[in-house]
């Protein structure tokens, strides 16, 4: 109960930060806050958001996955190559997502089966999957996808982009799984105390295989969405996105040691990062400033919360 209220408090803090960012934006530049603008800009954060969801689960379980960006790139490349080879676009998409799953399952197998620390496994597959994508595509971009496929990334219904709808559906699915299902409870249990969870009958190895498998699958899905958004499948898409994803999750209040955190927190973390980036870019037109502000927000918000929480105690 105490843990829950702690998490809830952090989400309040994040919501406040978000409100302030948006308030400042509305005050300085009202055009930025127009609904149509916000909806269109939201597509910039779709990949970040949907990959951050399974990452939340992975980190909640006490693990980490550095290879999501590389799995995403490999999925995009496999999708592109199979489409180029004549596969129908839906089949190529399925193949792409499955590639992501396979990447995740391989991670999971090493982590759960061979019991290597997830950081080490995914540090290696971070290089390996990008490398595979580079190798099989020979570094070449693949484009020229049909319009009805590109619509996934660019089309919208009533001004709401399809990709945003996919992201919202994913958020709902992950939020409900984390709070309403046995699977969700087990994720928290493993992260809080793996040995206790094992004695309580949680199938640790199978759970981990699932967690990393899901992370890979969702990364694959994000890869396909990314291709649809930018019309290019290439081995170097979204470089270092794993760092952005992890930043969003920890800013969202998920403990890097596992057991504590929530999907709602992650969504807020993504929103804070997204809005800050977009607004700083919108208003000041200096890319280097975005780096400074996003990094400071990460440190200062956690620091401020800790200091205040300690004083209050």
């Amino acid at each position: 109960m105490k843990l829950l209220s702690l998490a809830r408090r952090w989400e309040t803090v994040l919501a406040a930060v978000l409100a302030i960012v948006l308030g400042t934006a509305a005050w300085l530049d009202p055009a930025f806050m127009a609904l149509s603008t916000q909806l269109e800009l939201s597509t910039h954060a779709v990949e970040l958001l949907i990959v951050a969801l399974p990452m939340t689960f992975v980190i909640l379980s006490g693990g980490i996955d550095l290879s999501v960006g590389s799995s995403l790139a490999l999925a995009a490349v496999i999708f592109g190559l199979s489409y180029e080879a004549g596969a129908p676009v839906w089949a190529a998409s399925v193949l792409g997502v499955l590639t992501g799953s396979l990447c995740g399952i391989v991670n999971g197998a090493f982590i759960a089966g061979a019991r290597v620390h997830p950081l080490i496994v995914t540090l290696a597959t971070l290089a390996a999957y990008r490398g595979l994508a580079e190798g099989i595509s020979l570094g070449r971009p693949i484009s020229g996808f049909p319009d009805r496929f590109l619509a996934i990334g660019e089309g919208s219904v009533g001004g709401v982009p399809y990709s945003l709808l996919i992201a919202v559906a994913a958020v709902l699915a992950f939020a409900l799984t984390s709070t309403r299902t046995v699977f969700g409870r087990r994720v928290y249990a493993i992260g809080s105390n793996e040995i206790a969870a094992r004695y309580a009958g949680v199938p640790i190895a199978r759970m981990k295989l699932w967690l990393y498998g899901i992370a890979g699958t969702v990364a694959g899905l994000a890869g396909i969405i990314h291709v649809a958004r930018r019309n290019t499948a290439k081995a170097d898409v979204l470089p270092q996105v794993e760092l952005d994803v992890i930043t969003a999750v920890v800013l969202g209040g998920t403990s890097i040691f596992g057991g504590r955190g929530s999907v709602v927190g992650t969504v807020l973390g993504v929103l804070v990062i997204h809005e800050v980036r977009e607004f700083v870019g919108w208003r000041w037109q200096r890319d280097e400033l975005i780096l400074v502000v996003v990094g400071s927000i990460l440190i200062v918000s956690v620091l401020a919360h800790n200091l205040v929480a300690r004083r209050a105690r």
Binding site: V17, I20, V293, A304, V308, A309
Partner: peptide, 19 residues
């Protein structure tokens, strides 16, 4: 909680102004 949110709010505003 209220104090906390308030202080964070102030910090964030300061941050926004610094930016």
């Amino acid at each position: 909680i209220l104090t906390q949110v308030l202080i964070t709010a102030i910090m964030a505003t300061v941050m926004a102004f610094t930016a």
